[in-house]
């Protein structure tokens, strides 16, 4: 079964995953086009984080197909490395490298993986820092920044590899409330600039504003997907309605 890029930049067909005996992903099928912003929501334990982590092979799927930008995710070393270079990820726990400055955090991968020249990488890094709004923090260490600033550095670090797709795993869940907005603003600007994004989040305001589609996950299955309008006003499944009533208060 061959796949061309016309079908979508991400194509998932019947993806299954088990953690031991626990069936965490039960046949997920999803297609995404370039430039789309998809928000995934659902109760905890529903498998949404696991799902996006299978896309850049942080988790291995056991059945089904995942095809990113025409490359299929298999045990092929070359494919995995190629896909990792095209997909950027932002974590809930930031995971900045504490022993490197902000600038070094951002330039590390371009220099070592893309074999870029250090000065070139630093230029790009500064541009990205300006884009996320914190150019003055370039020479500080992560421990000296606030949570919101750290997360913005994470976004800049991911963008430095010029990915085609950005994955966000609950990016604001670990932030203090007053810092959530600054990160969401950056993400909104990213979405408007045409980046393909999958965002796992509870921030429904963000979803309403920039998402092209919202997907509801529960018990490892894709229960409902729809445009934000339809999703919030006309949820079709009982589970969706229950979930929405719990989080929209």
């Amino acid at each position: 079964m061959s796949v061309t890029r016309d079908q979508g930049i991400i194509v998932c067909r019947d993806v299954h995953k088990w953690f031991g005996d626990f069936h965490v992903l039960r046949g997920i099928s999803l297609t995404m086009q370039k430039g789309e912003v998809v928000v995934i929501c659902g109760p905890s334990g529903s498998g949404k984080s696991t799902f996006i982590r299978t896309i850049n092979r942080l988790e291995e799927h056991q059945r089904g197909q995942i095809i990113v930008d025409g490359i299929e995710l298999t045990h092929d070393l070359r494919n995995i490395e190629a896909i990792r270079r095209e997909v950027g990820m932002v974590f809930q726990q930031f995971n900045l490298f504490p022993h490197l400055t902000v600038m070094q955090n951002i330039t590390l991968a371009p220099v070592w993986v893309l074999k870029m020249k250090k000065s070139e990488a630093q230029e790009i890094a500064m541009q990205l820092l300006e884009r996320v709004g914190i150019p003055e923090q370039a020479n500080k260490y992560p421990g000296q920044l606030s949570g919101g600033q750290q997360q913005r550095v994470v976004i800049a670090r991911a963008l430095a590899m010029t990915p085609k797709i950005m994955l966000f795993d609950e990016p604001t869940s670990a932030l203090d409330p007053e810092m959530i907005k600054e990160v969401l603003d950056v993400m909104k600007e990213l979405a408007r600039s045409g980046m393909t994004m999958i965002v796992v989040t509870h921030e429904m305001g963000f979803a309403r504003e920039v998402a092209d589609r919202i997907i509801f996950f529960d018990f490892g299955q894709l229960i409902e997907e729809n445009t934000p309008e339809e999703f919030f006003h006309n949820p079709k499944h009982e589970r969706t309605k229950l979930f929405l009533s719990q989080i929209l208060h």
């Binding site: 990792r84 997909v87 995971n95």
Partner: peptide
């Protein structure tokens, strides 16, 4: 923490790097 490994892989670094 495991997150350091994950962040490094996500950014494209291989095991040795």
């Amino acid at each position: 923490p495991k997150g350091q490994y994950e962040a490094a892989y996500a950014v494209g670094l291989n095991g040795a790097l």
